[in-house]
Design a protein around this nucleic acid. Structure first.
Lengths: 238, 238
DNA sequence: AAATTTGACAAACAAATGTTTCAATGGTTT
DNA sequence: AAACCATTGAAACATTTGTTTGTCAAATTT
């Protein structure tokens, strides 16, 4: 048991990988211990033996995915901000948004975005102890950093507005990711004009949409409690 | 049994109303037949007796909610388009968006928007026979009409882009609605700066965001398959 | 070589939950 | 008044699903 690590952990590793795959495909609630074990060629008890329960397995899978994407995004953001400082300019809004979208919509690794969407959607629909933990521990940092970065890139927006729009941004990305494949509502309603499976187009469309959404603002103060009724008319009013 | 309709249907009606309330509060999966029956002061068997099962009850509740909001939105849209025609102008983008958001975010009737969000989110996370039916029968009409209206209001956008952005719009609205209350992620991350419970501010912020998101476009053709990489720079390029 | 630990497996267990059964009740009709 | 029918209620049923148990085989350690 000391020599053959690889053989010893085969079952555990198989379960771990199949879990990631099945969670992405069928969602978290759509995967049963039995189906998972069967697909991994293991016994149902093995899931509990190796991971201590389905929730722990899910926590492990999603914490890992979230962590990887967090690291990647924070690095991207660092790079963008360093470059901007070097040029003595503000970070480019489009670049910031693109780096955020990239972690969700990426043809090289379509699974990560899907898993992140599954995680956050589950957390929205029925919050859990473990979804809460993963979201707080891994995703909140990204949100805080991006709100700051987006604020720096959009001086025409007040602090509250940046928070609102970050939130809207995440919503549009996640809902789009959850509507993947040829059965998607978008594809059906557009008569095949839009294909969410084409990640390249999707990313461009998202970034276009979101960049526009952040461009126009009405610079409400932090204590804004709802009087911006004449907003949205003129672009960049400062 | 012929004379006292009101008394006869008391139980059925109570179940119906409690179901709507509980579906909005706890989501569809978060409501058990037992909890529902208890809160309605009825027996668990009554749910099946009067509605023929939980799914039928949910279908009835959500079909009703969706239908009401559909009728309301289509009427709003008709009014806007009629007015625009009378003035020989294009429909106002902001007015179109506002009428769409209104059905979801409305201080007079906060429950409808929440229920619609529950319905669509459930349909996204785990589609069903009955969610499919309700979405197709009630919500698709609205989507089609609004895509046309938004297209008329934004000549700078190509047909595919309007579809994409309509989709993104729905996503940001729904995800925001599902993040209601003082426990919301938005409220937590913004340090209390943004309160999703304040529907008036929420609506304004959403409409500002979405109006901006539709303003800038790159007029890709219908056969666009992903080459708009220089898009989003200049406002309204036609 | 013997003892111990690890891992796998079949089966059983336990809890949640939608649904059904069947007898009792109360009003309605004849 | 008697028959009838809709409604109710308690209990049982069936299914799904996560988890645990007890046994056995193989590998490792002593």
């Amino acid at each position: 048991m000391r020599l053959n690590h690889t053989i010893e952990k085969q079952t555990k590793s198989r379960i771990r990988h199949v879990a990631e795959e099945m969670f992405a495909t069928h969602g978290i609630g759509g995967v049963t211990t039995r189906a998972l074990a069967e697909k991994a060629g293991a016994n149902t008890a093995a899931v509990n033996y190796h991971f201590g329960g389905k929730d722990n397995l899910a926590t492990e899978v999603f914490r890992d995915v979230a962590h990887r994407s967090t690291v990647r995004r924070l690095a991207n953001l660092d790079r963008i901000e360093t470059e901007a400082r070097a040029n003595d300019a503000r970070p480019d809004l489009r670049a910031v948004i693109e780096s955020f979208v990239d972690a969700y919509v990426n043809e090289d690794d379509p699974r990560t975005g899907l898993l992140l969407a599954r995680l956050v959607l589950k957390h929205r629909v029925e919050p859990n102890e473990w979804t809460r933990a993963v979201v707080r521990d891994e995703l909140d940092r990204v949100a805080e950093r991006y709100v700051v970065a987006l604020g720096n890139a959009t001086p025409q927006l007040g602090p509250a507005e940046v928070h609102w729009r970050y939130h809207f941004m995440v919503g549009s990305i996640l809902m789009t990711l959850s509507d993947d494949g040829p059965e998607s509502r978008l594809q059906r309603l557009s008569g095949g004009l839009c294909k969410p499976a084409d990640k390249r187009v999707l990313r461009t469309q998202l970034v276009d949409f979101l960049t526009g959404a952040f461009l126009i603002g009405n610079k409400a103060g932090p204590d804004d409690d709802g009087h911006p009724e004449q907003a949205g008319g003129s672009p960049v009013d400062d």
